[in-house]
Simulated scan of single mutants.
Amino acid sequence: MNGAASLLVVNFIIAASFGVVFVVVAGHSRSRRPAYWIGAGYNVASLSAICELLVAYGFMPKLWALGAFSSVLIGMVLLGMGIGDLYRKRLAGWIICAFVGASVCLSYLIFDLHRGTPLQAFLYQTPFAIVLLVSAASVLPFRKRSSIDRFLGILLLITGLHFFAKAGLAVIAGAGTSARDYVHTDYAIISQSMTAVLVVAVGLTLLAALILEIMSDQRDESDTDTLSGLFNRRRFERTVQSILERSPDGKHAIILCDLDHFKTINDTFGHHTGDLVIREFGRQLLHHLPPHAVAGRIGGEEFAIFVPDTETDMAVGLAQTLRSATMTLPGLPATLQVTASFGVASLTSPANIAEAHRKADMALYEAKNAGRNRVKIAFGRA
């Protein structure tokens, strides 16, 4: 077995391994479907190595040559579908099927052309380049690009363009006079080496993107109260501190909230209903809060809201809106009326965050002592 044939075996093992890994990762990622597409793409593309070896050492070289071309192309298309799913840039199924069919027909038509001519080389490599350049176009304009997204987009762009370079190399170095000659040429060694490097690079980058997503989800789960869907106390305090560091001179507001008679709700209607109250109230908070606000569940029936760059009167208006919303929580027993009390305090200095919290807490207890189901304002600024 010569060098090119050995590289074909190596590429088969690499692609098949990536295929298995992506299928395993799919079971742990919220991007399950994209991961399955990508894994399927690598598994299908790995078959091209077997087909290339059968072209050189088996019977019916034309059939296996079409198999090699089709498996690489379909594998790349599946990879592109996974990337499109991951970055919300999906192509219509009929476009994909039409492109694959036309490309396979093109490969059949050019099979008997003299290998290594510019026409044959560029017609053969262009479909591969198109698939990866379309994938790059799915990633690069993505609005929420991270550094790993930018790197992936550039890598896909380079990988797509490298197929044109391979076509030029086939013309310069020669790809043999027939399909059987391919694995015995220097061009095959260079081509398979380039492919191995790029296959590994793209696979590792996609794998890193999915693993980072899994890690982010796990971090969010550990920082999120599963019942209300809001931040837990630790995440809430850390997020507020981060906002204050970015905007130390702003006027902010803190709202503390306590569900009224929550123990009675649990004792009368059961803990299931109490959990339902917490869950629905959390949804109401998320629905009514402005995008820049932060909300957390800091105790059993206690909630905290931080509204950056907001005057006290606006925060009071928000608290009144939330107070009204608690009286119409959906999905609760008809005889159950849920209300909440609110305390509002202003904050002008990050150093006084504890004092602002204390003032909001005092205002909250004033609201409860005054009969509950109302909003009270702490006097003075912290």
Rank of each mutant, 00 (worst) to 15 (best):
215 M>R: 13
218 Q>W: 06
219 R>W: 09
219 R>P: 05
224 T>P: 02
225 D>R: 04
229 G>N: 06
237 E>H: 01
238 R>N: 13
238 R>Q: 13
240 V>M: 03
240 V>S: 02
242 S>L: 07
243 I>K: 02
244 L>I: 06
245 E>N: 10
245 E>L: 05
245 E>H: 09
245 E>I: 01
246 R>P: 00
246 R>M: 14
253 A>K: 08
254 I>G: 03
255 I>S: 10
256 L>S: 00
257 C>T: 10
258 D>I: 10
258 D>T: 09
261 H>T: 03
262 F>V: 13
264 T>W: 04
266 N>G: 01
271 H>V: 07
272 H>I: 03
272 H>S: 08
276 L>H: 09
276 L>D: 15
281 F>N: 02
282 G>A: 07
286 L>C: 05
290 P>R: 06
292 H>L: 11
293 A>R: 06
298 I>S: 08
300 G>S: 05
303 F>C: 12
304 A>C: 14
306 F>V: 14
306 F>I: 13
306 F>Y: 15
306 F>S: 12
309 D>A: 07
311 E>D: 15
311 E>M: 02
313 D>F: 03
313 D>P: 01
313 D>C: 11
315 A>F: 08
317 G>F: 03
319 A>T: 06
319 A>L: 05
319 A>W: 08
322 L>F: 08
322 L>M: 07
323 R>W: 05
324 S>T: 14
325 A>T: 05
326 T>M: 07
327 M>N: 00
327 M>R: 13
329 L>A: 12
333 P>G: 10
333 P>C: 13
338 V>Y: 03
338 V>I: 14
339 T>G: 13
342 F>C: 08
344 V>R: 11
345 A>W: 07
347 L>S: 12
348 T>Y: 02
349 S>F: 06
